[in-house]
Every structure is written in structure tokens, then in C-alpha cells.
Simulated assay, not measured.
Amino acid sequence: MSSQSAAFSDGSFTFPIAEVPERLRGGVAAIGNFDGVHRGHQMVLNEARTAARRMGVPAVALTFEPHPRTFFRPDQPVFRLTPPAERAVVLSALGLDGVVIVPFDAALAATEADRFVDGILRDRLAIRGAVVGYNFHFGKARGGTPDFLRERGEADGFAVTVVEATVDEGGEPISSTRVRAALEAGAPEVAARLLGHRWLVVGEVIHGDARGRTLGYPTANIRLAPDCALRHGVYAVRVAVDGQTYDGVASYGRRPMFDDGAPLFETFLFDFSGDLYGRKLTISVFSFLRPELRFDGVEGLIAQMDADSADAQRILGEAEPLSDLDRMLSFRAG
């Protein structure tokens, strides 16, 4: 397996296009970036899953890495709402059978729409059906439109479904752009309403400076992607690790009172004791509590952390699932 392929494979659910297992061939493919897996994306994915179950074939999400906008403008990388690990968690919860990732590179950008259908949809995946959103385009210069895909499907014997825009309760189209804006503004509740589930952070716990232990708040530290534009501050969160779920409070930022270093996501788990180093956490972000602050002394910081913990426990104790998907992702039994 190449190093690029290894980056796109976890050996069970997510695979590079060059190494599609036989069990995922001959199915219905939901095609798109699916960044955030918001309520609009879920309409596409659920349509693909329903069609696949009706036909007795696998339901597959076909997506791309990196995000095309990041490829074309690397100096302005897109704030990824769901990097591959996070996206896999949500897609698995939605009942997809697997994710296939196409590397978005210069070769793909130069591939004509016809060749994309022939080489990827027919040869690699042998699809029986495809489901796309109304605004999905593919191939060189975005030459592949939903109508083009329908025509190819009719000619080549695979069904094509195009899903129209999904709007929120105010009649505005739901988009990843709106979700990003909400998280950048420190409004995870708004983001969650657009997503239909709480926004997730997935990562492996790394060693920090252990300062939290001296303050009475030992934290599990995760380094988020450099493109993450989540507002710096303190959040009420719920953490899943090794099949167990814990409420907690997290800080994302540069620690202005100490080192003012690279941004770090630091989570304190209530009612937990043990070593989390090297373990993978899935963290659901519920509410923004306050911005990152600088205190005059350690006593003031600890007092504020006590207040933050009380606020987080209250908020999480009153929280309700937004959907069945949110229940699976953020309300797992401990």
C-alpha cells in the first residue's frame, strides 16, 4: 500500500479508490464532498442507502481529499468540518457500508467528465446507481453536471437520482459554509441545528505539559488540523472513548496565560480517572461557554474553571438529542 493510500484507509470502512474491496463494488454511490455531513448531505446519503437496500447492494459514499477548494487555493485552505476520521464516524452512523476516497490532485482536476464516469464509477466501482446533490459538478472545468450524469446513467445502465436543496426552518439553504461561519463565531448550537447533530472532534490524545494536573483539571489534549477555525474559547462537550461516554469541559486555544503556543483542544472529563495517552477520543461539542481569557493569577483561573465545569454540567444535563443520528453520536450510553 502506498503512503497516500495508507492515509486514506483504516482497513475496514474507508478506502482509497485504487484499493476498493470487492464488497463495495456494484453498489449505489452517494457522490460529493460531504464536509460536515449536514442535513442536506444526509438527504443524499439516505437516498443512496435506501436505494441500495432496495436493490440488495452496498451503499457507498464517494468523496475527495483534499477538499477541491484547498487544492486550487492551498494558501487559503478550507476549514474542514469533518476531516476523514470525523466523516467516517458520521457516515458509519448513517448506515453506509463504506467510504471510498478519490485523491483530488492535478490529474483528477484535468480528468474530463466522461473519463471520470468510465474510470471511477464504472471500472473501479461498477456502480448500479448514483445519488448527487443538485449543485454537484465533477470533471475538468466542472463539466460534469447532474444532467450529464443522468444521461450517462441512461446510456450505461445505472440509475441516477438528483436531490434538491435542503432548507432550514427559515427557508434558507443549508450549506457547509453556514456551518463553518457558526463555528467560527463560537455558535456550536447554530451549527448543530444545520448539521442535525453536534459537531464532532476526533483525535488521538497527545502528551502536553501536564499543567492541568497541578491545577486540579487534568486534560486530554488533541491537536486539531491547522485549517480549523473554531473560535478559541471554552466549550461544554461530551466524550466517547472505548465504548464509554463522559461529560466534560474543553478549552480550544493558545493558553494566553502560559505559553500562548499553537492551538490545542484540551478536554477535562468529569468522573474519569486513568491514562488516555494514545487513545482516540470522539468529542461532541455542545455549547460555547466563554472566550479564552488571561487571568491575573492561578487562583482566578481555577475559580473560573470551577464555574465553567458547573455551567457545562448544567448544559449537558439538560441537553436533548436533535435527531436519531445525534442520539447515536452524542448520547451513547456510558
Rank of each mutant, 00 (worst) to 15 (best):
M1R: 07
A7P: 05
V20M: 02
V20Y: 08
P21Q: 02
E22K: 08
G26A: 11
V28I: 06
N33V: 15
L45A: 02
R53L: 13
F71H: 14
F72G: 10
R73E: 13
P74R: 01
Q76E: 14
F79S: 11
L81S: 06
P83A: 14
P84Q: 13
P84C: 10
R87S: 09
I101Y: 00
V102N: 01
P103T: 06
D105T: 04
D105A: 00
A106L: 07
E112D: 15
A113Q: 11
F116R: 15
R122P: 09
L125K: 14
A126V: 02
R128G: 12
V131T: 09
N135Y: 13
H137G: 07
F138P: 06
K140S: 01
R152Y: 10
A155D: 12
D156K: 12
G171Y: 00
S175Y: 06
R178P: 03
A185W: 11
P188E: 05
E204C: 04
L215M: 06
N221W: 02
L224S: 05
V234R: 12
G243W: 01
T245D: 09
D247K: 14
D259F: 03
G261R: 15
A262R: 13
A262W: 02
F268C: 14
F272R: 05
S273G: 15
G274S: 06
R279A: 01
L281V: 12
S284R: 08
S284E: 07
D296W: 06
A303Y: 10
A310N: 11
Q313R: 15
R314Q: 11
I315Q: 14
M328I: 15
L329M: 03
